[in-house]
Design a protein around this nucleic acid. Structure first.
Ligand code: SF4
Ligand code: SF4
Lengths: 133, 133
DNA sequence: TGAAATTGGACTAATATAGTCGTATTTATA
DNA sequence: TATAAATACGACTATATTAGTCCAATTTCA
């Protein structure tokens, strides 16, 4: 079953909120309350979004997160990469140079699948947070 | 991490072989030997491909599977559907009417994600087994 | 000084995927 | 007619991934 992870869903829910109110600061708590998202999990997600430069944060009381990029500059691909490490249609397309698939050497679909994967990344690169209207 | 399952990979490896030698009969054993794919698992996969009409089978000695459709008529989407039950980008897009996501009622990304899911299905509908050359 | 916030690591629980085992049935052929 | 080779099917185990929780540190405003 091809799907995106819950974490990415939570990230997109949050990013959509940020996109609707740019320059406004929201805390993890506020967002988790508003959307019934598990607080601790959402916190981790927002931290990752910050680490890759999509959000900026301020510590301490009255702290929180705010958007650090234009919503139409943030691609779904970026979000998937930030949270889940990206798309890798097949096992051998993950960073796993060592410990590769045993089929690798006589795999007949490796190359065509790699091509499809590229197209898929392109697909998600064209999808922006601003499209989640 | 967005990816396809091992079962779908095995299905595609098999289907590519069938597509290269149409009308030729192959057994589970032959294919699992040729590609180092676990025999029992591959058997299950081929049974599913038969059930949805992509392959036909003959029982008993000298039995096996052969292609039952044109390779350029078999889409990757069909294969994913047959083996893994299709693509459902988000949880709420699986057949789960009951036991839905608790966020469902005030989820802000549900509808746009549904649209993206449709495009994604369209993407995989355009990919044919015959493209795996 | 205290409350509210981010940050970060370790941990557990739940689920999904991958793979195995055993057994029944069919069928060509020796 | 016995046997070997094949599909067919269901139950099972093992492994990996995902989801979620817990705990403690640090920052900062008031
Ligand atoms: S080598 Fe082939 S079977 Fe192995 S992970 Fe890559 S695509 Fe899949
Ligand atoms: S309702 Fe929203 S959060 Fe829940 S599964 Fe659907 S898209 Fe994801």
């Amino acid at each position: 079953m091809i799907k995106i992870s819950k974490k990415v869903e939570y990230a997109l829910i949050a990013l959509k909120l940020f996109a609707e109110k740019p320059n406004e600061v929201f805390t993890s708590k506020q967002i988790s309350d508003k959307y019934n998202v598990p607080y601790e999990l959402l916190s981790k997600v927002l931290q990752k979004l910050k680490k890759c430069g999509l959000l900026s944060s301020s510590l301490g009381m009255n702290g929180g997160y705010k958007l650090d990029k234009d919503p139409d500059q943030i691609t779904i691909q970026q979000v998937i990469s930030a949270i889940d490490g990206g798309i890798s249609l097949t096992e051998c397309q993950q960073g796993k140079t060592k410990d590769n698939c045993i089929i690798f050497d006589n795999c007949s679909i490796k190359d065509p699948m790699h091509k499809i994967q590229n197209e898929l990344q392109n697909f998600f690169n064209k999808k922006k947070v601003s499209d989640l209207v």
